[in-house]
């Protein structure tokens, strides 16, 4: 697409989308949000970039094959479920580590996995569809 406004704006917007997607990913534990919606927003940023600069440029900007991102996301999500075996709890039970005010948990790890899986899957689909057109 040859639009000066879009191609200039996309560079900034993509960065903004990615930042906001991380924000949504992290705030999801007390407010609406989470890995899934974060992944969608992040993917939307790259989709916008691919509209503005072409799929090839978007793939280069991503550096990693989106399929690999998705698969790693799935791996992280599954492994976070396995972690509760160490505490001999049911699979996928959340384990919490409270450091002063910071609450870390396997739930967050699972959400990061979901984020990556959604991000990778959406970009795989959209890039593949754009390339066939």
């Amino acid at each position: 697409m040859n639009s000066l406004i879009l191609s200039v704006g996309a560079r900034f917007l993509t960065a903004l989308f990615l930042l906001f997607s991380l924000f949504v990913l992290l705030r999801g534990h007390n407010s609406p949000g989470g890995g899934f919606i974060g992944g969608l927003i992040g993917a939307a940023g790259f989709v916008l970039y691919s509209f503005a600069a072409g799929v090839e440029a978007a793939r280069q900007a991503l550096r990693v094959d989106p399929r690999a991102i998705g698969v790693w996301g799935m791996a992280i999500a599954v492994l976070s479920g396995l972690a509760s075996a160490l505490a001999s709890l049911d699979p996928f039970t959340g384990l919490w580590l409270i450091l002063a005010d910071l609450a870390l948990s396997t739930v967050l790890v699972f959400d990061i996995g979901v984020y990556l899986a959604v991000f990778g899957a959406i970009l795989t689909l959209v890039f593949a569809l754009e390339e066939t057109l």
């Binding site: 698969v71 790693w72 799935m74 791996a75 599954v78 479920g81 396995l82 075996a85 699979p91 996928f92």
Partner: peptide
């Protein structure tokens, strides 16, 4: 775990 592992192993293998 006895119930979950038969499901989880194929997905880990898939990855």
């Amino acid at each position: 775990w006895v119930l979950a592992l038969p499901i989880m192993i194929p997905f880990v293998t898939a990855v």
